[in-house]
Design a protein around this nucleic acid. Structure first.
Length: 660
DNA sequence: CAGTGAGCGAGCTTCCGCTTGACTT
């Protein structure tokens, strides 16, 4: 047998390793790093911030086996190809691999360690990458080190300040503290918003209805805009503030409405871009009510089964192979007129997209959701499939019509819509109901069957949901596809915020912490902080700025600020809510609700003089299925809610889900 | 899973981003 040169290819994801292994011959060995192989130590800062910025990288216990695997495989190889993701983190992972090999004294000349970069997992893309190998980009690696060190410095400095000034065990960081701030700011904006009633007028005719638009040229509905912390918010206000005003108007109407204008025009609708991680999480939340965590775990399964491309991505890019396949599929299945006349390409909008991967799409268009066995996987697959394939569908064409009716200086309007050609909507499965208006001529007179007054009110800005929080963070360039779901888990686990019917509300600890951080660390808590950091990192990546200079510049101000705050800032008082009852023990204090390590509990306002405490029983609408006592909501140490029995410890019933 | 809060002051908590399991909590 001929002695072949053995090439060792290193990627990040094991699924990717398997796929690539199938493309390449037996003279290739492919292995996955499973993400980073080394990191800063958990138990200490690990960076000499006041000195030369020397970094103490360590290999986590769980990763030791992967590292020894890496080393033994490298020993048997002639060429080592670092084929980690083509982005900042990927470059750093590759560099760490090289460092680990160097440390373990592998006898491979550095000229035989190469860097290969590909953006899609196809035989052609990989062959091309292997024919165009280069070296590690140390500027990009340094940009990653700067990012890592800055996050460590911020996190491991802020957190101890919070232990001292607010409460033990808390945490702060560039990303999570801004996420909490968004929720706190929104709560304050909702509190400031004054809800106003207004009244609308609708005339009903046979077969259609028309809404009051204007009176004597004055619009009945206007849009008000207010500035929120993370953008503008628009809401609708009506002209009639009382029912009496609306009634007086209705009474002033004449019997006859005159058709004063009829319009009809074509309108087009184009498909949305394919999913990124954030958009997938938002859609799955909207359609199925899934959390980001749930969505990602189902997507992971689909990815491992080879059904979809990688699910952690910020890119809307589709490979030309995929586009061709989608177009062929649409032509074959729905007819050539359903294929978009031109290939649709999409551009990224998010601020610091790294675009190491493709958009999330099915790997094969002909695999339909029906053939995906598991129910939840089939649901998510269907969502992904429709969105991706529909991108190459033709635009939908609709006829939009309006009828304007005049009555004593007041104008009413009816709107209709009729589908002419459903186009991509046939693929995405969206249904648009036609609203058909009767054929009327200008000058025709009509009598209303009924004129209705409808009470409405102005809507305050909405609380964040999983979906809207991730969307806001992404817009600001804060967080990454791999961290959107964990960010939410963290701020809930720290009990800064709680989910209430899918909406986030700050807790008293969350508000107190946020207030403290905004007062003392406004720069880090500001939305542009990350964007500015990214600008500096770009300069580092381009070799225009030394990463140590960048970090030193930041640390100088930040550590001085911190020293001052540690000395001068007062400890924060956490607001408590009164229950309205008196303390049964001392009979003096009021009972209040406090937030402790295990969630809310009842305590005496005179603490520490009086130490009375009791469990706060959050009642729910069903009884304990074992003993019939009230069921209550409880929390695990990690902050996850579960149902338990109010008679605990006499009855030990507990469950994650509502029993049926 | 039966505690929490303050402060005493042992020893401890904490970041973000890359990747999967191992747990059924």
């Amino acid at each position: 047998m001929r002695d072949m040169k053995k090439t060792f290819l290193i990627v990040e994801s094991p699924t990717k390793a398997k796929t690539i292994g199938r493309f390449l011959g037996s003279d290739f060995e492919v292995m996955a790093t499973m993400g980073h192989m080394r990191d800063l130590p958990k138990s200490k800062m690990g960076v000499d911030l006041d000195g030369d910025l020397a970094i103490d990288y360590v290999t986590d216990g769980a990763k030791k086996k992967t590292v020894s695997d890496l080393v033994s495989k490298a020993k048997k190889s002639d060429v080592i190809v670092l084929a980690t993701d083509p982005d900042r983190e990927g470059e750093a992972i590759a560099w760490h691999v090289q460092q680990l090999l160097e440390i373990s004294k592998i006898q491979i000349p550095s000229t035989k360690i190469k860097r290969a970069v590909f953006h899609e997992i196809t035989k052609t893309a990989i062959d091309e990458a292997l024919n165009n190998m280069g070296k590690l980009d140390m500027n990009l690696v340094d940009a990653q080190q700067a990012r890592r060190v800055l996050d460590r410095a911020v996190g491991y400095t802020l957190s101890p300040v919070l232990w001292k000034k607010v409460r033990r065990g808390l945490s702060g960081g560039r990303v999570q503290s801004v996420a909490v701030r968004l929720i706190c700011e929104r709560e304050a904006e909702i509190g400031k918003f004054s809800v106003e009633k207004y009244f609308m007028v609708i005339s009903k005719f046979s077969g259609f209805e028309a809404e009051l638009k204007s009176i004597d040229g004055k619009k009945v509905l206007t849009t008000n805009k207010i500035k929120l912390f993370d953008g503008d918010y628009s809401f609708t206000v009506g002209l009639f503030k009382t029912e009496k005003e609306a009634r007086e108007f209705v009474d002033s109407l004449l019997d006859k409405f005159t058709v004063s204008k009829v319009t009809e025009k074509d309108s087009k609708r184009s498909p949305l871009p394919p999913f990124t991680t954030s958009k997938l999480q938002q859609a799955a939340f909207r359609v199925f009510g899934w959390s980001g965590k749930q969505t990602m775990s189902v997507a992971q399964k689909l990815y491992e089964k080879g059904l979809i491309t990688y699910h952690r991505t910020d890119s809307v890019y589709l490979s030309s192979k995929a586009i061709d396949e989608f177009r062929n599929y649409i032509g074959k299945t729905y007819g050539v007129n359903y294929v978009a006349s031109k290939v649709r390409v999409f551009a990224n909008r998010s601020k610091n997209a790294q675009e190491a991967h493709e958009a999330i799409r099915p790997t094969r268009a002909e695999v339909l959701a029906e053939s995906v066995g598991e129910a939840r996987e089939a649901k998510l697959y269907s969502l992904i499939w429709k969105r991706a394939v529909a991108t190459q569908g033709a635009s939908a064409v609709m006829k939009r019509s309006t009828i304007e009716l005049t009555n004593n200086k007041a104008i009413f309007e009816a709107r209709g819509v009729r589908m002419i050609f459903d186009g991509f909507l046939k693929i995405s499965g969206e249904k648009l109901e036609d609203v058909v208006l009767p054929v009327l001529k200008v000058g025709e007179e009509l009598t209303a069957k009924k004129v209705e007054i409808i009470e409405k009110e102005t809507n305050p800005p909405p609380r964040y949901t999983d979906a809207s929080l991730v969307s806001s963070l992404e817009k600001q360039g804060i967080g990454r596809p791999s961290t959107y779901a964990p960010i939410i888990s963290t701020i809930i686990a720290r009990m800064y915020v709680e989910r209430d019917e899918g909406k986030f509300k700050p807790t008293s600890v969350g508000m107190a912490t946020n207030e403290f951080l905004v007062k003392n660390y406004l720069d880090i808590l500001s939305l542009p902080f990350t964007a500015e950091m990214e600008e500096d990192l770009d300069e580092v990546a381009q070799g225009k700025l030394d990463w140590k200079k960048m970090i030193k510049g930041f640390w100088k101000g930040f550590s001085a600020e911190t020293k001052k705050i540690e000395k001068e800032a007062d400890r924060v008082k956490i607001e408590t809510e009164k229950t309205g009852e008196k303390c049964p023990e001392c009979k003096e204090g009021d009972l209040v609700i406090r937030e402790g390590r295990f969630g809310k509990f009842i305590s005496c306002s005179r603490f520490p003089e009086c130490k009375y405490s009791a469990t706060l029983k959050e009642k729910v609408d069903f009884k304990c299925p074992e003993c019939g006592a009230d069921a209550v909501i409880k929390r695990t140490k990690k902050g996850r809610k579960f149902f338990g029995c109010s008679a605990y410890p006499k009855c030990k019933w507990a469950s994650w889900k509502k029993p049926n």
